[in-house]
Design a protein around this nucleic acid. Structure first.
Lengths: 215, 215
DNA sequence: CATAACTGACCGACCAGTCCGTCCGGTTGA
DNA sequence: TCAACCGGACGGACTGGTCGGTCAGTTATG
């Protein structure tokens, strides 16, 4: 009656195995948090033994960070692609923001991963989330410069523009789950984007700008 | 030589004991996180035995939540006091925002506490941080109504105003530690407040508004 | 058969919560 | 005034269970 179904052992290229393990890690870490998630569960979920996990990642901590980096790279990549799809700087900005919101709509577990990183490791080192953000700051400067040039801007420097943009997007996503009734993040794109522009410009009509830039 | 310094046992009113324990709990939970912090350490820090902690709080989780609630109440109370010190709605708003930033400047450990709550318990229940915020939403509606009446507002309803205000303040505080070089939160007050107003109004001169309201 | 990948039982450290002996300090009565 | 007494607050050793990381043995592959 009780079938002893033995999983067949398979050897795979390291890269593929690691990807499987990382996918499982993202899920488990996101749902339980770093401390509570246990490596055994991740291994089972990835369909491998615990020993195998440790063959590919030296410690639980490293496993977590790799899982996180994987997600960060995916997000970053999507944002860059969204940017490159447009030439008008305001369209670029809106597309990037949209991608950001959409990403967290599609992968709510990633929010949890970020939250847990901030809680667990943000204490004494800058979270990878921000480290990476900051590391790649330069990539976005040209866009913000262009936005600035395109708008009747009040006196704000580019760094401040970027900082505010990051804060408001992060805030919207981070708090999106907490608001009752919770709205899908991307529904908030329009609201947040308009608000952001209003916050930047002097006194021009936002509607004019919208029309001018086909937003 | 080695003095056996035995702590004298002292009986105290329950309330006082609990306050001592909660203060220790805030510190330890904030610095280590919910999972890593151990009750023994909290007990030692409060100058009591572990058993005593469990006399006053049924579980570690309850201890954490009480510690959090304590901080939330302090913050809320300060914000209300700041509000009541002014009659002009814009001055009130600015004062409340200022208090919020100042509080986290003075008690950076409280940020950590919120972060850990979101990570540990925000998963399946609304964090107390937001629950309380939402619970007391009504307290702030009159102020935002008044702000709205005082400004040449674009078409935003009060709920949205409050939501955006919360997000931008939370974002500024939450990210304040991540930015390099990190600025004291309160230094950002002016920047964030102006940004917020710009985001609300139609096309009036912010400077006019500032002068009119003595900001 | 040689080698590399894989496995999971095992070890030791760690910790939430318990439990009972200890001792404080308020009360009583002579 | 003070000594004997007692309720209950207190302390901390202990227990039971958990989990990160290891390693000796097993299985696939060439």
């Amino acid at each position: 009656m009780v079938e002893e179904l033995k999983k067949k052992r398979v050897h795979k290229p390291a890269e593929e195995r690691q990807a499987e393990i990382l996918d499982a890690a993202v899920l488990i870490f996101a749902s339980k948090g770093y401390q509570v998630a246990d490596v055994q569960t991740i291994a089972e979920h990835a369909g491998v033994g615990k020993g195998t996990v440790y063959r590919h990642f030296p410690t639980k901590e490293e496993l977590f960070k790799q899982a996180l980096i994987r997600q960060l790279d995916i997000l970053r990549c999507k944002m860059l692609r969204a940017h490159d799809a447009y030439s008008d700087p305001l369209q670029q900005l809106k597309a990037v923001m949209s991608t950001y919101f959409q990403f967290f709509d599609d992968h709510p577990e990633t929010i949890e991963l970020f939250v847990h990183e901030r809680a667990e490791f943000g204490h004494d080192e800058t979270p990878l989330y921000f480290a990476r953000m900051h590391e790649h700051t330069d990539d976005w400067i040209p866009m913000f410069e262009a936005v600035k040039a395109a708008l009747p801007m009040r006196d704000i420097d580019v760094e401040e523009m970027m900082c505010l943009c990051g804060e408001i997007m992060h805030g919207a996503v981070y708090l999106s789950k907490a608001i009752v009734p919770s709205r899908a993040s991307h529904e908030r794109l329009e609201q947040v984007f308009r608000f952001y522009l209003h916050g930047l410009v002097t006194n021009a009509s936002i509607d004019e700008i919208y029309q001018l830039h086909n937003l």
